[in-house]
Every structure is written in structure tokens, then in C-alpha cells.
């Protein structure tokens, strides 16, 4: 279990979800004649002028607005994603420049499939917790890719979440402790220069998602001497609607505990952003004294678990930026043709 020397927490938080959606049934119409079930009702679709950088910028602006801090107070802008727009050229520099934090800033990109954002979160805890910096911004953002017709196409979606890590005494929620559980378990990967990832079908389940989340979550609970009943809310990584509900049940968390942060049925899997966005959505409804347990998951493979306590400061900062519900409410559905045009899946010659 890792705990910083200097207590840290979330000084601000912010989310972003694109306005556009495609229904699971619309994708099924193209590939399965509309037959069979779909893993989520709908997924968010990035607009044609959106990518990981633009979504990170808006989520980060929301986090800064909640903290009411000048951008120059930040010491790091770290962007976790598996869909950075460039292979070589940091997303973090563009985001930092847009926020107005440059040039005296650390900026970098992180990659660990769907837990790249929580890697940046843990690193930010270390940076602030060691006293090297007062504020660090950890972002998880993705415009996830799914091969046309593949199971992933139903869920791979787009969104961003930004967590502004700072001293615990200034925080809307204190991060008590974290730990990570990592192995080389090749359940999902994308080779360099390939457009779409491949996955191990059922292998992505028990030895990958479930084993890693259970391992990290159980150990953190044990180390803290807690049980699921000690937490008001919980968030688990959401590759679809079913997995987070199953792992919650296996661990002993109830549907009510995970409800506020369960976003995948409405917007799909926003990869690096989904667990962090679930945390933000939970903070949108939490009350001082509430406790939140979060476990992320990144394929091939690892999980980061966190124990978080909400402070009274949350109430004064919550409405300084749009809530997750504002982004969920503005949904505009597109058909499959518009979707493939915007996703650059047409060969224009």
C-alpha cells in the first residue's frame, strides 16, 4: 500500500464527453442484421474536430475552474491515453499551452491501455505527496478505436476526465492510499502503426479484468482493515455494462454503491477516462464524509486501487464547472454512415 508523506487529495476535477452518440442497435443493424444483444445501449462518438487533446483541454479547464486556481499554479500536466493524436509529439504540451501553464511545467504522456489516466494520478500523488510540487494535473482521455464489426466497436468510445491533485487540506476529496497490481497478461493490445487493437475474447475476462481488479481491490481493503460496507460508493473500470457490475458483486459491493459512477451503459468505454469519469460523476452527487473506493484496469494488464474520503470543500466547488449530467444530457445520435465518416474509416483516395 502506498501513502504519500504529505497527505494529498483532489483539489479539483472535471470531465468531458462529446455531444454525439451512436446506438448499439445501429451498429448491430450494419453487422448482425440487428440480431442479438448489445453490450451497451449507446456510446459517445467524438465530433469531427475532437480528439484526445481537445477533450483533455476541456476536462482540464473544468478541473481548474473547480479548484479556482490559476493555470500557472500547476507543476505537471500529464495525459494518459492510448489514442494520443501523434505517435511522437506530446499531447501534454498542447494541453499545457491551451491552459496557459507553459513554460515552467512538466508535461508528458502516459500509456497503459485503459489505466493510463490512473497511472498519471498515482504519479501526481507522488509528486505532490513528496513535496516536490503543490499541484499536478492527471488526465485520462481517449477516442478509442474499434475494428468495424468487432465486438469492441460497440463500446470503444470517447471522453476525458481530469483530476487536479493537491494538498489534502485544500481538497474536495482526500486520497487515503493506493496500490497497484500488474502482470504481463496479454488480453488486449495494439501493435505499433496498426489502426485497431486486438483482444483475446473471453481471455479478457477472468484472468485479465476480474483477476487484476479483485487482486488490487482486495489487498487495499485488507491493508486498510476495511470491507466494502465501509464505503458509500465504488467505481470499477467499465469495458462494458456487465463487467463492473459482476466484479462489484464478486467483491461484495452493491449495485447502489456503483450506480452514480456507472457510465458505460450510456456512453460506452471511454478507456483511460472511464473510471476517472466515474469518480467525477460520483463526486457530483457525494456528500462530505462519504467514502469512495475506486479500482481501475488497464489491459495487458494492471489495476490501481484508491481509497478516497469526501471533504466539506466539495459542496462549494462542485457547481463551478459542468457536472457529468450536463454532458450526458446533450446527446445527439448519429447513424453509422456519419460515424464512419467522422472516424476516418472511409478511403477518400
Amino acid at each position: 500500500m502506498k501513502q504519500p508523506d504529505r497527505p494529498v487529495g483532489l483539489v479539483g476535477y472535471g470531465v468531458y464527453v462529446p455531444r454525439y452518440r451512436i446506438a448499439g442497435k445501429e451498429i448491430a443493424r450494419i453487422w448482425t442484421d440487428g440480431q442479438g444483444g448489445v453490450p451497451v445501449d449507446a456510446k459517445s462518438v467524438p465530433g469531427p474536430d475532437e480528439d484526445t487533446i481537445t477533450m483533455s483541454i476541456e476536462a482540464a479547464r473544468n478541473a481548474l475552474a473547480r479548484a479556482a486556481l490559476p493555470a500557472t499554479a500547476l507543476s505537471a500536466v500529464w495525459v494518459g491515453s492510448e489514442s494520443h493524436p501523434y505517435s511522437v509529439k506530446p499531447s501534454g504540451t498542447v494541453v499545457a499551452e491551451a491552459l496557459g501553464t507553459t513554460p515552467w511545467i512538466s508535461a508528458a504522456d502516459w500509456e497503459f491501455a485503459c489505466k493510463a489516466g490512473s497511472e498519471a494520478m498515482t504519479a501526481s500523488m507522488g509528486l505532490v505527496g513528496s513535496g516536490m510540487a503543490d499541484y499536478a494535473l492527471a488526465i485520462g482521455a481517449d477516442t478509442a478505436q474499434g475494428r468495424p464489426g468487432d465486438a469492441l466497436e460497440y463500446t470503444a468510445s470517447a471522453g476525458a476526465a481530469a483530476l487536479l491533485i493537491g494538498p489534502a487540506e485544500q481538497s474536495v476529496a482526500v486520497i487515503e492510499a493506493t496500490l497497484s497490481y500488474v502482470t504481463d497478461t496479454p488480453d488486449f493490445f495494439r501493435r505499433a502503426d496498426r489502426p485497431y487493437p486486438v483482444h483475446g475474447h473471453r481471455f479478457t475476462g477472468e484472468p485479465a479484468y476480474f483477476h487484476h481488479i479483485r487482486s488490487a481491490a482486495t489487498r487495499l481493503l485488507d491493508k486498510l482493515g476495511r470491507t466494502p460496507a465501509d464505503y458509500t460508493y465504488a467505481i470499477f473500470h467499465q469495458p462494458n455494462a456487465k463487467f463492473p457490475q459482476s466484479v462489484a458483486k464478486q467483491l461484495g459491493f452493491s449495485n447502489a454503491q456503483i450506480a452514480p459512477g456507472l457510465l458505460s451503459p450510456q456512453i460506452g468505454n471511454t478507456y483511460s477516462a472511464i473510471a476517472l469519469a466515474g469518480l467525477c460523476a460520483t463526486l457530483d452527487v457525494a456528500q462530505p464524509g462519504d467514502t469512495i473506493f475506486m479500482t481501475t484496469y488497464g489491459s495487458s494488464a494492471g489495476s490501481d486501487a484508491y481509497s478516497i474520503v469526501v471533504t466539506p470543500t466539495l459542496l462549494e466547488r462542485r457547481n463551478r464547472a459542468p457536472l457529468m449530467s450536463s454532458y450526458l444530457a446533450r446527446q445527439e445520435f448519429v447513424d453509422y454512415a456519419v460515424y464512419v465518416k467522422w472516424r476516418n474509416e472511409l478511403v477518400l483516395g
Partner: peptide
């Protein structure tokens, strides 16, 4: 104002970002 991708200058070019 939001910051969005203004223009894609091609596979070996810049992605240009700016206000909309």
C-alpha cells in the same frame, strides 16, 4: 469558446488546434 482541431495538414503534417 472551446479548443478544437481546426485542420489536419495531412499524414506528415501538423494537426492544427484552435478556438471555435
Amino acid at each position: 469558446m472551446v479548443t478544437r482541431r481546426l485542420k489536419d495538414m495531412g499524414e506528415d503534417g501538423l494537426l492544427v488546434y484552435g478556438y471555435k
